[in-house]
């Protein structure tokens, strides 16, 4: 078996040299068994596995055994292969826990829908020999947008007036991309700060990872819209603010003491949403949008259109 893989690698990509050659897989059902040095063959194409992908959350590296970082031997391009892993778990969103499902079929369908739309990660899906749907994803060379924003080394006021308007222009385009999904009866399902990337070179904002889905409720787009709102709050604030970190960022104790229940997030009890209380130069109408995601909210955005109508309206006035 190892010889077969070694011959394949030497034939297709002679410049590559591996210490150890593994097995050739045409059936990806047992994804835990597929590891470094193995080759996955799908649709007569060959993908040499380098490693399992992992996600870093709360400082802990969380391996995703069903996601393989690979080299496509025929082209030499690096790809991510997402193998079939059906999972149901409780997604904790602040005080709420929601049953969440991982659906390879959904992500494959969206990859077809958004092909060529560079506001999203790109890829395609193929079936392996056992009928498992494998998603073959292009790697985005870039950085998480939130990290990029966090690392802009200027005081908040300068960031707000000199950097944020351009960032919001692109963010609006990212929101429009989510609207495209909704218009086609799809949801992103996992809109978080680490799922919007800024691409090196082009500076484009690109959504990644849309395999989560839910039992659709009366408002099927609520989760996505809340995700967009949380992202907007981060972009406007250039950070997340809680009563615990305010003094560390130089806010006087009176600012902390002036905070009320209504100033905090509807879901994340500790997160400050009423950013105008911290940065008085934030225009009222922009802050008004943020407050839709706070305990003070009485009406909620049901569509991306409603959210964007408010956002573009206040952007058109400029921040002065």
């Amino acid at each position: 078996m190892a010889k077969e893989v070694e011959n394949l690698v030497k034939q297709l990509r002679p410049s590559l040299s591996l210490g150890e050659y593994g097995r050739l897989f045409t059936d990806t059902s047992e994804y835990m068994e597929i590891s470094h040095g193995d080759v996955i063959q799908i649709d007569r194409q060959h993908y040499l596995v380098l490693r399992d992908e992992s996600e870093r959350s709360f400082g802990i590296e969380d391996p995703k055994y069903w996601v393989k970082r690979c080299i496509h031997l025929e082209s030499g391009e690096r790809k991510i292969l997402k193998l079939v892993f059906h999972e149901k778990f409780m997604l904790k969103l602040g005080t709420l826990a929601i049953p969440c499902y991982r659906s390879p079929e959904k992500e494959a369908r969206i990859l077809d829908l958004i092909r060529g739309d560079m506001r999203f990660m790109q890829g395609f899906s193929r079936f392996d020999q056992k009928g498992n749907i494998v998603r073959i994803i292009d790697i985005i060379s870039g950085k998480r947008l939130d990290q990029h924003v966090f690392e802009i080394e200027v005081p908040h006021k300068k960031y707000f007036f000199d950097y944020l308007p351009a960032i919001l222009e692109k963010f609006v385009d990212s929101c429009t991309a989510i609207k495209l999904l909704h218009d086609n009866g799809e949801i992103h399902g996992d809109i978080r700060r680490d799922h919007l990337w800024i691409e090196h070179g082009t500076g484009r904002y690109r959504w990644i990872d849309f395999d989560y889905t839910y039992e659709f409720a009366e408002n099927p787009f609520g989760l996505d819209i809340f995700g967009l709102g949380s992202l907007l709050i981060y972009l406007v604030g250039k950070n997340i603010y809680t009563p615990n970190n305010l003094q560390g960022y130089g806010f006087p104790v009176e600012k902390v003491e002036a905070l009320e229940h209504n100033d905090f997030s509807l879901l994340y009890k500790n997160r400050i949403v009423n950013l105008r209380k911290l940065f008085p130069y934030i225009p009222e109408d922009l802050n008004f949008i943020l407050m839709h995601f706070s305990n003070a909210a009485e009406v909620f955005y049901e569509t991306v259109d409603e959210f964007l109508a408010d956002l573009t309206s206040c952007m058109s006035k400029g921040f002065t």
């Binding site: 969103l93 602040g94 005080t95 709420l96 929601i98 409720a217 009366e218 408002n219 099927p220 609520g222 989760l223 819209i225 809340f226 509807l266 879901l267 995601f293 305990n295 909210a297 909620f300 049901e302």
Partner: peptide, 14 residues
């Protein structure tokens, strides 16, 4: 709750 209504909506409210 408000949070539930935002995320999931409510048939009766609609």
């Amino acid at each position: 709750s408000k949070a539930e209504e935002f995320l999931f909506g409510s048939v009766s409210n609609k």
